[in-house]
Design a protein around this nucleic acid. Sequence first.
RNA 1: GGUCUCAUCGUCUAACGGUUAGGACAUCAGGUUCUCAUCCUGAAAAUCGGGGUUCGAUUCCCCGUGAGAUCACCA
Length: 467
Amino acid sequence: MSDVRTRFAPSPTGFLHVGGIRTALFAWLIARQAGGTFILRIEDTDQAREVQGSVDHIQESLKWLGLNWDEGPYFQSKRLDTYKKYAQQLIDSGRAYADPYTPEQVQEFREEAKKEKKPFLYRNHRPENPPVWDGSKPLRFKSNPKEHSWHDEVMGDLHSGEEVIDDFILLKSDGFPTYNFCHIIDDHEMKVTHVIRGQEFLASVPKYLNLYEALEIKPPVMATMPHIMSEQGNKKLSKRDGAKDILDYRDEGYLPESMINFLATLGWNDGTEQEVFTVNELIKKFDLSRIQKSGAQFDERRLLWINGAHIRNLSLNDLYEKVTIFWPEEAKKTDESYRKEVLALVQERLKYFAELPELTRFFFADLPVNPGLISGHKQLKKYEAPQLKELLEKARDSLEQSDFSVEDLKERLNKLLESTSEKPAVLFSLIRIATTQSPASPELTGSLHVLGKEKVLARIDQQLQAL
RNA sequence: GGUCUCAUCGUCUAACGGUUAGGACAUCAGGUUCUCAUCCUGAAAAUCGGGGUUCGAUUCCCCGUGAGAUCACCA
């Protein structure tokens, strides 16, 4: 096993949406590609924002996608002693001090600076003789204002000035560490080699580098992912703006490999014209340096197309296993071989499983005659009812003689076209409508074959009566 | 407002300074014996603006403009 170690570190404040999942995916791909270790860490240091059940929900989401982790989940709330140890180290080395001010006072400083149109820096108010830290006050980092230069695997070489370096809080007055502090400790203790995170953290990297120096820790490789933007394209995708729970996609019948394909190619490509990737191909081909620097808009239509492509690549048996819960109610009493025949017919037109019921219901239930299908048909509506009746009766007579093999059905329908000298658009539409009573259905002979003689004739009779 | 990042068809993107700026999704039009879909063919569709550098800029530099992020005892 290589020493590459990556982590996904969500906070348990609700469900995961595509943005968070993509960060997890890229970290996972790096670990898997290198034969390294993928770690799950729960950043639960903000008790106020914690949402019940979200830890389970997060794990369920990752499991659905197959983003399996090798270590964890670790919980930061169970590691407070570790953070205190490092905090003490910083106090001892003179790089941390007790914050003597109340939040209100700090807020005043902030407003003062704003009034003077100057950027607010806490360190301008750094107390000369801070009180001894007893845990009742926040513990602040005593920063060392300086310029920082560093490399980001995605963004390239970056540089920042000393004006962005400030004294930030390490430990809150409730004893919990801030993210800014504990993620650095954890990444170090867990020997994380590659930190993959969203662009919202980019502006904070200089202050992390400052802290790394104070702790004498070598920073990991850093890679900043551009944001996934909302479909309006004007802001970072977030729960507030209606980003969906990733598990909603599972419940609508998207394949996990489709979601992974979609998210991986949103802001990344392998340099070829390949669009559809299996997960294994992604593990092999993924490369941080080919990640786009700019944010990409989330386009669900593209996800839909990718999902259709993956569905078509599935073997019938695989597909059958995956659609189990999506069959229409009426299908439950039919046997497996019949459902598989139906599935084989609709596989090429299925884009997500939730549309399975509307696509297949007529195979399982006798639907009432729907006159709108004929009156709304651009060819059939030109015909009078008696003409249609005569035509359908001829079809019935011929089908009654059939053994209902696909070959025989094809042959009979072709002969019928000749003998009636009707266009396929008329004859086939009529038979299709009579036997399916649905606006859309798979190709005709296959559908007739699967439905079987008994049902087909009965449905034609039903249609004849209505004409 | 300060700071940071980014900028190619509507969308996702390709193009070691030299291409008729390519592909995919979506759209539209044809075709594949019926519908919906698949598949095939075709159409329309882009280098944000201005300056440089260069024989030559989508590509390098500068200035604008636009977009996003960030400036918490949230992560």
